[in-house]
Design a protein around this nucleic acid. Structure first.
Lengths: 136, 136
DNA sequence: TCCTACGATGGACAGAGTCCAGGTCAAGAA
DNA sequence: TTCTTGACCTGGACTCTGTCCATCGTAGGA
């Protein structure tokens, strides 16, 4: 994730200890964290980091396209650092675990012109739902 | 929507004036309302109806499969009475308007077995995003 | 090393939704 | 029709998620 910090620095970002810690948390193998979870993990390394800073930093990373926002339930948004590799999500309805998946074909191509109602369609999000092996 | 009330009665639902009003509101042509909007419209006809009742009634209709819950932004969930006709959603990123759309093919079929990770996949939600003609 | 504008803080606030104790009423029974 | 009762409704407090803002701190250039 030092890559990420380098890219952000290249975009004029001031690199602070708070931003570094948030970036490191997202770089772990526990992806799809909520903002609250990111804050909790960041606070393990930098106890005085504030919620507002975590929200700001995540929001900035999202608007720079470095992190994806995912909301698979009606609850808290989750943050997915895998933003540079197009993918969709598979969610377990029982335990809520989220996996990145790669459907075949281009989902955008499945929407015929007469179903676009004059929209300029630019993006598709697909969420598959089911029950994972552990919950079944 | 008297159909809906009849189906609910058949499932042992007690038909109260509150539930009737909520069902009538969802039957209007202004679909994809938030719970707050449903409450506001219901209160026009039944001023003393409470927020809790609207939330409860919507939740019950969802769990009975009579209404679909849609969350296209990170904000309030929206309620779609068109639950008996499979469809997906097209959302304008500018004004937030939501249209029901019908992609070709079966979106479930696009997820290969090796991308299912042992899940029993039963459902797909597809959200197309773009800019509508009025906002372009 | 010093400056200063950008960033962090924390506490108040807002929006969406849930919970609960107590009062009300739909619908079946008599 | 009236009675009975358990399902339903109410209003208000509460939780969770996220935003805002005034003030303070500091990264990084001069």
């Amino acid at each position: 994730m030092s890559d990420l910090l380098e890219r952000l620095r290249g975009r004029g970002w001031r690199v602070t200890s708070q931003r570094r810690v948030v970036a490191e948390v997202l770089d772990g193998d526990h992806v799809h964290l909520t903002a609250e979870e990111v804050h909790a993990r960041a606070a393990e390394r930098l106890p005085e980091i504030s919620r507002a800073t975590v929200y700001n930093t995540l929001g900035e990373m999202v608007s720079l396209g470095e992190v994806m926002e995912v909301s698979t339930d009606g609850r808290a948004k989750r943050y997915d650092p895998n933003a540079h590799h197009p993918h969709q999500h598979l969610v377990c309805s029982a335990c809520g675990i989220i996996r990145d998946v790669h459907p075949s074909g281009d989902p955008l191509a499945n929407l015929p012109q007469e179903e676009r109602f004059g929209f300029t369609v630019s993006q598709v999000e697909v969420t598959y739902r089911g029950v994972c092996a552990a919950c079944a």
